[in-house]
Design a protein around this nucleic acid. Structure first.
Lengths: 224, 224
DNA sequence: GTCTATATGACGATAGAC
DNA sequence: GTCTATCGTCATATAGAC
């Protein structure tokens, strides 16, 4: 019994390691060839095995895309969560928005293989499963919570629905990402034409949605 | 001689008609299956011919993508040029920007097959040729000319480089398009979650880049 | 349980007959 | 200009060795 359980653990661990290696190689391939350029045969070739062996770990190519989608969503959600926890909660509005935008866009531009899979629709016939989509929802909620906090601190206007503010924030950040990746692929975050526009665009957003109310210290919420 | 020339004309016209039919069917396929779902075999099947016959008109699948890129860029550039010529040149800044944004985004959302090919990078290994790219440059210049006109009319700030203003304008419009197409594909322009944000986002842009100088002649609005 | 060997059918592409 | 025949590669499926 004991031995059986240990062997099962070992086997499962070994299996999980192989799965991670497949995902590593697949992500590398998507980075080199573009998301739609992923090929089961090439993954197997680089791993030194035969293509059919991959079907032990993934039922289909779309199942592999699904696992990559889930992994990418978890990676960026984790990155943004860690970033949020380290964030100085006393920063003024524009500074706070600027560091958030920089963190998200930098990750997105430096991981184009996941960004394209997560935020564009490059693979015909592939839709993420509910399971794979869950961490993507977590990412949206994280962004919402950060904006809600700014609203509670009295820095963001509260006469406009948080939902609308978040939508505009998403439009701006994803607009920079998509322009940068489509027009200057491979260009580093620090020197991109569109990533360089982040401060200007964030200033525009901050100016529009900054609270016009004088900020009282430790303000909770009071409508005019 | 005369007969030869006439026959050549007729042959060339016939050839051009076939090419247009191939492009029509290919665009239809990209709309149904996604840009990367285009298949030479399926195009031939729908045209009632054999796949190798298509190679008379296009050297490769990427040559077909190239012709589709050129066609799409010409379609949207023509649409925006016609729109610009009909535009009322006395409109105030925000109105002028709003109708421009609506025209561009409406076209983009209603032609996702061309938009994806033109503004994303969904096809591994495909880059548009110089010839195919030329009308895309014309589109950028059109947008630049419209913003320059607004600047000359004294409506847009002239203390910021036109280039930077245009970059931010591109980020905003393409951000709406990419979010709308990626998150709600198939949703009509009129009822999209992100297309509905156009007035708010354009207002944000107009507020940031409106000239602070009082306009001398035929002034429409005055600040605070 | 995990792999190899092998097969199927679709794809893009080419050569050559008519 | 269109066809048939054919090639190599792809995703995918199954049979069976260890």
């Amino acid at each position: 019994m004991e031995t059986g359980a240990v062997q099962l653990d070992r086997r499962q661990r070994r299996r999980q390691e192989t799965i991670e290696e497949v995902l590593d190689v697949a992500a590398e391939l998507m980075r080199e060839q573009g998301v739609a350029g992923l090929s089961i045969g090439e993954v197997a070739r680089r791993m030194g095995i035969r293509p059919p062996s991959l079907y032990v770990y993934f039922d289909s190519k779309n199942a592999l895309y699904d696992a990559l989608f889930e992994r990418g969503a978890n990676l960026i959600a984790d990155a943004m969560q860690t970033f949020g926890e380290q964030l100085d909660d006393t920063l003024p509005l524009e500074d706070s928005l600027l560091v958030s935008a920089n963190a998200f866009i930098k990750w997105a531009v430096e991981h184009p293989e996941y960004t394209q899979l997560l935020f564009w629709r490059p693979v015909p016939g592939f839709s993420p499963s509910e399971r794979a989509y869950a961490p993507a929802i977590r990412l949206v909620e994280l962004s919402q919570q950060r904006l809600a906090l700014l609203q509670r601190r009295g820095l963001l206007r509260d006469d406009i629905a948080l939902e609308d503010i978040q939508r505009d924030w998403t439009v701006i950040t994803s607009g920079i990402v998509s322009q940068q990746l489509a027009n200057e692929p491979g260009q580093p975050f620090e020197s991109g034409t569109f990533t360089s526009a982040i401060p200007r665009v964030v200033a525009m957003f901050a100016r529009q949605y900054a609270s016009t109310q004088p900020t009282r210290r430790a303000r909770h919420a009071d409508k005019r």
